[in-house]
Computed example of a mutant assay.
Amino acid sequence: MPVLVLVRHGQSTYNLQNLFTGETDVPLTPQGREEAKAAGEKLKDTPFDHGFTSVLQRAIETMSLLLEAAHQPDLPVTRDRALNERNYGNLQGLNKADIAKKYGEEQVAIWRRSYTVRPPGGESLEDTYKRVIPYYEGHILPLLQKGENILVVAHGNSLRALMMYLEKISEDDIAHVDLATGVPRFYHL
């Protein structure tokens, strides 16, 4: 039975500073590197056949540190923009608390968690879903169907989109789903 494991990248510098990250390419913090290694320790007993990650350095570094800790440093890994975090547009790089003061907590929650509402100049979760799921169906699912174990290291929203698809989570319910950094999530297919 093939296994699909999803891992959100470790804490990034923007996570630590409470900034909207989106597609801004920021590194991991020391804590984020430790989270990646801890995830690898948890995955030592899962032999992977292939890995997938975004093209953003926080996901790439998490994948690398995780695989080193899991004693699988030579795993073939494909990087693709389709797995990038959603683009937060004009909010990228801005402090979430400051934006909440300016626009209200409710509006910020809608921008962050709603399925269809886009932040100014950015992508909705629906937009993210529309790039993640075709990529999953075209590149990841065929390997799972061949019986391969797959590791995906990506971002909160690209993984939430994939979780919607895999778990049949509704547009309303996905607003209440959050992924901790560096914690593996297993799917036995």
Rank of each mutant, 00 (worst) to 15 (best):
L83Y: 08
T24F: 11
G122H: 15
P27S: 09
P76G: 10
A39S: 07
I110C: 07
A97S: 15
D98R: 08
L56V: 08
Q92L: 09
D74S: 12
V152S: 06
L141D: 00
E105C: 13
E137N: 09
Q31S: 13
V132S: 01
L65V: 02
A82E: 12
N95G: 06
H155V: 01
R33S: 15
T24V: 03
L151F: 04
I140V: 15
G89F: 04
G121D: 02
E148K: 15
R113A: 13
K37G: 07
G40W: 04
P142N: 15
R33G: 10
L83W: 02
L91W: 02
S124F: 08
D98V: 02
D45P: 11
L28A: 05
I60K: 15
L67S: 05
P30A: 09
E126T: 05
Q57M: 15
V77R: 08
A38N: 13
A36L: 00
P73C: 11
R58Q: 03
K102D: 14
G40M: 06
T46F: 08
A100K: 08
I150V: 11
T46G: 12
K102W: 11
Q107D: 09
E41V: 11
L67E: 00
R160H: 11
D74E: 09
V132N: 00
L43R: 14
S158C: 13
K44W: 02
A36Q: 03
I60H: 15
G156E: 01
L159P: 03
G93M: 06
I140G: 04
P119D: 09
I140Q: 01
H139T: 12
K37T: 09
K44P: 07
G51Q: 11
K96D: 04
Y129L: 02
L66G: 00
G147P: 06
K130S: 11
D45I: 10
V26W: 01
H50K: 11
I140N: 02
K130P: 05
L83V: 00
Q72I: 03
G156K: 05
E35Q: 15
G104V: 02
E68K: 10
G89E: 03
L75A: 09
T24S: 07
Y115V: 05
L143Y: 04
R118Q: 14
A82V: 07
E148L: 13
E148T: 03
T116I: 12
V55L: 05
L151N: 07
N87V: 01
T116D: 12
G89Y: 12
A70P: 09
A39T: 03
V132Q: 04
Y115W: 14
G122W: 13
Y136K: 00
S114L: 12
P120E: 07
T46L: 13
L94P: 03
Y129V: 01
T128Q: 14
P119T: 04
T21M: 10
G156C: 03
A82Y: 10
P47Y: 01
Y103S: 03
D80Q: 12
